[in-house]
């Protein structure tokens, strides 16, 4: 099973592709956009400064596939050391992590959009590994590029506009 499907199935809270009809589940919820994902968080750290987003460390994997471990925040073979001040009990400073990782953050109201994580881009830039993405087909079925491993692929874009 694809990891993203697994996350969607195993997580109690909503994980969806950032489709145009996606909405925060309730007025108090926070939405995090990353890659092709839109993750709705019903709990973030209360009383955090307005330019900081603290999430539950347990929510990090479904946000960006990183996991908080003793040696840092890790994904696949990459671990980014996390200074103590970015953690507090169950909370993890996601915007602080982004700054460390060189990741852009754009925030408006309760929606936080994160840019790519430069260190993760090395797979494409250095190893030519095609970045995986997910997008719906015409029937709404989610298609991943990785579904076609083992075939040659021409992937092209067009638009109605």
């Amino acid at each position: 099973m694809n990891r993203r499907d697994f996350v969607a199935l195993s997580s109690g809270a909503a994980v969806s592709l950032a489709l145009p009809n996606a909405r925060a589940a309730s007025a108090g919820a926070t939405t995090v956009l990353f890659g092709d994902r839109s993750v709705t968080l019903d709990k973030t750290r209360p009383g955090a400064p307005p330019n900081e987003l603290w999430v539950r460390a347990a929510d990090l994997p479904r946000i960006n596939d990183f996991t908080v471990k003793p040696q840092g925040a890790c994904r696949e073979d990459v671990c980014i050391p996390i200074p103590k001040e970015l953690k507090n009990g169950e909370w993890f400073n996601l915007t602080g992590f982004a700054r460390r990782a060189g990741e852009t953050v754009v925030n408006e109201e309760n929606v936080w959009s994160f840019g790519e994580i430069p260190i993760m881009g090395g797979k494409y830039l250095n190893n030519r590994q095609a970045p995986d993405f997910a997008a719906p087909d015409r029937t709404g079925k989610i298609v991943h590029l990785s579904d076609f491993r083992g075939k040659k692929v021409l992937l092209f874009t067009w638009a109605s506009w």
């Binding site: 494409y124 190893n127 030519r128 590994q129 095609a130 590029l145 990785s146 076609f148 491993r149 083992g150 075939k151 040659k152 692929v153 021409l154 992937l155 092209f156 874009t157 067009w158």
Partner: peptide, 12 residues
């Protein structure tokens, strides 16, 4: 339109 070619191993 813009395209990429991707081989059997997922390499661009």
């Amino acid at each position: 339109p813009t395209g990429v070619w991707i081989d059997e191993r997922g390499r661009v």
